[in-house]
Design a protein around this nucleic acid. Structure first.
Lengths: 178, 178
DNA sequence: ACCTGAACACCGTTCAAGT
DNA sequence: ACCTGAACACCGTTCAAGT
């Protein structure tokens, strides 16, 4: 990076403010779920009026996109650390999702704008899944969808109350191991 | 049914009005998606002011619950007609969902209140799935989740643009056939 | 450059009042 | 019995104005 390209102090301050906003947004998400994240609440959380947010973010869509990117990053980390077997990968996926339910929603529900998102992030999160089915892309999509479905239904409390979800996950893993 | 239990004309009229409201809600859902269904729009759709809706429905939650019940019913019909093989069942599920995307969202996203919903409806929709895996409840939950995940990700455009989803479905079916 | 106040077009819902 | 008008507490967002 040449001297001329060094980010100016004001640019750095702007970026820091943006980080501060995103972090506050994650905190809101964590505390009050996805419907707790409103532009107005977020503004008071960082100590400004709602309209001021629009100096840092184009709109709520962009906010959600940025959070989605962070979520995929964090999930990618978790999957990379999970271990190579299908069972370990599945457990890692479920564990991350249950630990970050609102962030999982954002990662998963927001229609990701493929133009703007860093494609590396998505690929990195997907890589262990592809590896677990020996590179078969169709099987990897089915596996990814299956894991997503399990988590989605669990988070929405759509399984019967006493349902043995460990056993359901085991059945899922078994199906894809064969 | 005894004479005394015969529904009074006014009860019948009330029920008919309620049906009219639910049908209008489905129409809104169909035309403008899930975010197009607001109490205010629904009211004008049936020719009244928004507050009047609350004489027919306790709140929006109850509206969504009623729509969910209808959706599960309709989906149950589709699955019962789909044919007994796993591949046919999967195709029937996907076809119904893609034909009724907003209703699928409602059927699937609304936290169903198990006390109030008719349990027969849920069981009936699930029956063919259970049968397809020879009655193994854990496998049937995994299969259901997998199909739901495929549909959910497809509806949210989360698969890469040119992705061969027929092949992904085939991989899913193959996994559960083994 | 950054922030605010007022405003606009929406929400779901309540409640007193009309017929 | 059924419906309305006015109101309340919220949304996301824009825009002129202040420092």
């Amino acid at each position: 990076m040449s001297l001329a390209d060094r980010p100016s102090p004001v640019a750095t301050r702007r970026a820091a403010r943006r980080e501060e906003i995103l972090t506050a947004a994650e905190r809101l998400l964590d505390e009050d779920g996805i419907e707790g994240l409103t532009m107005r609440r977020l503004a008071t959380e960082v100590g400004m009026q709602a309209p001021s947010l629009y100096k840092h973010l184009r709109d709520k869509q962009e906010l959600l996109g940025a959070l989605q990117q962070r979520a995929l990053q964090s999930m990618g980390d978790a999957l990379a650390d999970a271990g190579p077997t299908l069972a370990e990968l599945a457990a890692g996926y479920r564990t991350w999702a249950l630990a970050n339910p609102a962030l999982y929603r954002v990662a998963t529900a927001v229609p990701l704008e493929r133009e703007r998102i860093d494609p590396e992030i998505e690929e990195r999160a997907a890589a262990p899944v592809v590896a677990a089915v020996d590179g078969d892309e169709h099987r990897s999509r089915a596996l990814w969808a299956a894991a997503h479905g399990m988590v989605d239904l669990e988070l929405r409390h759509r399984f019967p109350d006493g349902a043995d979800l460990d056993a359901a996950w085991a059945a899922l893993v078994a199906a894809f191991e064969a």
